[in-house]
């Protein structure tokens, strides 16, 4: 689990969104999974099916039931049969603890439940990597825990995840690797332990001390 931290506007989300090219790559090279993403000629749709993404504002499809939100891409992109996709979707919905909400519409769910649906939606594609863009920033405080729990258990199952977050406690305890960004650059890249105990860079130290002091 890689966690990207840093002050607002430091380019964390942009970096994350470059990984599946939601952000246009204007210059330089980026190779993900052996695919040269900066090359405009690659089959981006084929590449994206191997990378799940979870957004700050969930971005569930409001006109579709939970179950239909989840099976859309598996059926249309992977060519799974409806029944197969449903079965898989239910497996993951149960895993994130909301199997009983399959036939609800997103608007009938709490923020935490919606975000868990979004995670199940990503997982049903069998991705090699999951990207999380501030997955708890839009949640009420009492719902942050349930989403972090799901992510923690994913990490235990060995899912590769890249997470942009402001939840330092979570980063400290669950991350393998921490990337600290400031002003659009990666300033420090360290193991979680090193980063939180003895950050090398001055800017990282200031950032951490500011967080700890309130």
């Amino acid at each position: 689990m890689v966690v990207i931290v840093g002050p607002s506007g430091s380019g964390k989300s942009t970096l994350l969104r470059c990984i599946n090219r939601l952000e246009t790559i204007t210059d330089g090279e980026l190779v993900v999974n052996g695919v040269p993403l900066h090359n405009k000629k690659i089959d981006i749709n084929r590449f994206r099916r191997e990378i799940g993404m979870v957004f700050q504002h969930f971005n569930l499809y409001p006109h579709k039931k939970v179950i239909d939100n989840i099976i859309l891409a598996p059926v249309k992109v992977l060519g799974m049969s409806n029944a197969e996709a449903r079965e898989k979707a239910m497996t993951y919905l149960n895993r994130v603890g909301i199997g009983d909400k399959a036939d609800s519409y997103p608007s009938q769910l709490s923020g935490g439940q919606q975000q868990r649906v979004a995670i199940a939606r990503g997982l049903t594609m069998n991705p090699k990597i999951m990207l999380f863009d501030e997955p708890t920033s839009a949640l009420d405080p009492e719902m942050i825990g349930e989403v972090l729990d799901v992510m923690r258990s994913l990490a235990h199952q060995g899912m590769t995840m890249v997470i942009v977050t402001h939840e330092m406690g979570f980063a400290k305890e669950a991350a393998d690797r921490v990337i600290f960004m400031d002003e659009g650059r990666i300033v420090e890249d360290a193991t979680s332990e090193d980063f939180f105990k003895q950050p090398k860079e001055e800017r990282a130290r200031t950032f951490l001390s500011r967080l700890l002091h309130h």
């Binding site: 599946n20 939601l22 749709n45 084929r46 994206r48 099916r49 990378i51 799940g52 993404m53 957004f55 504002h57 971005n59 569930l60 499809y61 859309l72 891409a73 249309k76 992109v77 992977l78 979004a118 939606r121 990503g122 594609m125």
Partner: peptide, 15 residues
């Protein structure tokens, strides 16, 4: 329609 809808769809591999 919010841009996030397209992003969610495209990021899952839909054309």
């Amino acid at each position: 329609v919010p841009k996030g809808q397209t992003e969610a769809a495209r990021s899952s591999g839909l054309s």
